[in-house]
Design a protein around this nucleic acid. Structure first.
Lengths: 198, 198
DNA sequence: TGCGGTTGACTGACTCGTCAATCGAGGGAG
DNA sequence: CTCCCTCGATTGACGAGTCAGTCAACCGCA
C-alpha cells in the first residue's frame, strides 16, 4: 500500500483543519471532513473517536510545540527583550506557515475554553506563565521596571499578538511578507517601550 | 397587565444572555432560554425571529453604546493618554456591571465573526478606528512617538483589554473591586510607557 | 366579542456515531 | 506461479436522538 495508517490519520486531521477553518467547528459536519479528505464517512471514526477529539488533537499537537519553543527560548541566555521577540516570532511564523491551524486554535479553542475540557485552560495558562517568567527575569535584572506585574504583561503581550492574528484572520487582507516582520518588531517595541515619545 | 411588550422582550433577551454565558450559544437550546425566562417556548419566537437574532440584538445593543462612549470621549479635550484610560475604563466597567453580556460578546461574537454576518465585523472595526484615531492625535500633538502605527496600537490596546477580560471570564478567579482599577491603570501604563525602566 | 399575547405539542430536517458488509494487500500452501 | 485465506482498512446506509421553528388553540383584558 502507498499510505500507512499514520499517513491516513494525518490526511484526515489535515482535512479537519481546513474544514474547521472554513466553516467553524460547530457548523461543519463530520461528512464535510470525510469529503474534504476524500474518504468514506465511517473511516473518520476508525481513526478518531469523535469530532471533538479531532479538535483536541490538533490543538494539543500544535500548542505543545509552541510551549516547547517558548521553553527553549527561555533557557537561552539572550536578553528578555529578545526572548519576547523570539516568542512573538514563533507564534507569527506559525500563522505564516499554516494560517488554518492557528485560525482554528484561536477561534475555536483559545476562546471557547469554557465549553471544552478544562485541560486546555491549563495548557493555555502554561504559555502565559512562561511569558510572565521572561518578564519577571527582566525585572530582576533591572532591564524592566516592575510597575507592571509579570502576569499582566504576559496577558497584554499575548493579547496583542492574538489580536494581530485575529485581524489577519477576519479582515482577509492580503498580507505581504514584510507585514509579518513589521508586526513582530512593533509588538516588542510597544510592549517594551510603549508609545512614549523617545 | 403589569408588563408591557417591550418589558417582556427585555425579559427574554436578558434570559438569553444568562443562558448564552452559561452554556454557550451553540450548545444551548432555545427551550433553555424559554425556561430561564419563565416563558413558553413559542413566545420566544413571538419576539425574536431566530436564536441568532437574539445574539445579534444583544451584541449590537451593547456595542453601539460602547462606540458612542468612545466617540464622546474622543470629542472631549483631554490628553490622549487620558482618553485611552477612559476607553479602558468603559470596557472594564461594562464587564464589572454585567459580566455575562461581555462574556457573550467576547466569546460568541467578537471571535466568531466569520460564521456570523459580516455586519459585526464592520462594527468591530469601527471601534478599532476610533481608538486608532486617539493614538494618531497623540502622535500629531507630539505626546506619542510615531514608530508604532495607530492601527497597530489600537489592536494591541484592545487585545490587551480583551485578554484581561478573558482571564477573568475563564479563570473564574474571584475579582476584588480594586483589581478593576489596577487593570485599567496597568493597561494604560503598559501601552503608553511600556516595560522600559523609568 | 375581538384581539394581541401566550402556550406547548408537534413536525421536519439534520447529524452523530454504529455496524455489517466489502475490499484488497500480503503471505502461506499446493 | 497461482489460489485462497486472513485480517485490518474502508465503505456508506441506517438507527437514534436532537432541536429549531411552526401553528392551532387558548386566555384574559378592553
Amino acid at each position: 500500500m502507498s499510505t500507512t495508517a499514520a499517513e491516513k490519520r494525518r490526511l484526515i486531521l489535515d482535512a479537519a483543519v481546513r474544514v474547521f477553518a472554513r466553516q467553524g467547528f460547530h457548523t461543519c459536519r463530520v461528512s464535510d471532513i470525510a469529503d474534504e479528505a476524500g474518504v468514506a464517512y465511517g473511516l473518520v471514526y476508525h481513526y478518531f473517536s469523535s469530532k471533538e477529539q479531532m479538535l483536541d488533537t490538533l490543538f494539543l499537537e500544535r500548542w505543545d510545540v509552541m510551549l516547547a519553543a517558548i521553553a527553549e527560548t527561555d533557557e537561552s541566555d539572550r536578553a528578555p527583550r529578545e526572548k519576547l521577540h523570539a516568542v512573538a516570532s514563533f507564534i507569527i511564523d506559525s500563522y505564516r506557515h499554516d494560517p488554518d491551524v492557528m485560525k482554528v486554535i484561536i477561534v475555536e479553542v483559545t476562546r471557547a475554553a469554557n465549553t471544552f475540557g478544562r485541560t486546555h485552560l491549563a495548557k493555555i495558562r502554561d504559555a502565559y506563565d512562561s511569558i510572565a517568567g521572561i518578564v519577571a527575569a527582566g525585572q530582576r535584572s533591572g532591564e524592566f521596571d516592575d510597575a507592571i506585574t509579570p502576569q499582566f504583561a504576559a496577558q497584554a503581550f499575548y493579547g496583542s499578538v492574538e489580536q494581530v492574528l485575529t485581524g489577519w484572520i477576519f479582515d482577509a487582507a492580503p498580507v505581504d511578507e514584510r507585514a509579518y516582520e513589521r508586526a513582530k518588531t512593533m509588538i516588542v517595541e510597544l510592549i517594551c517601550d510603549g508609545l512614549r515619545r523617545r
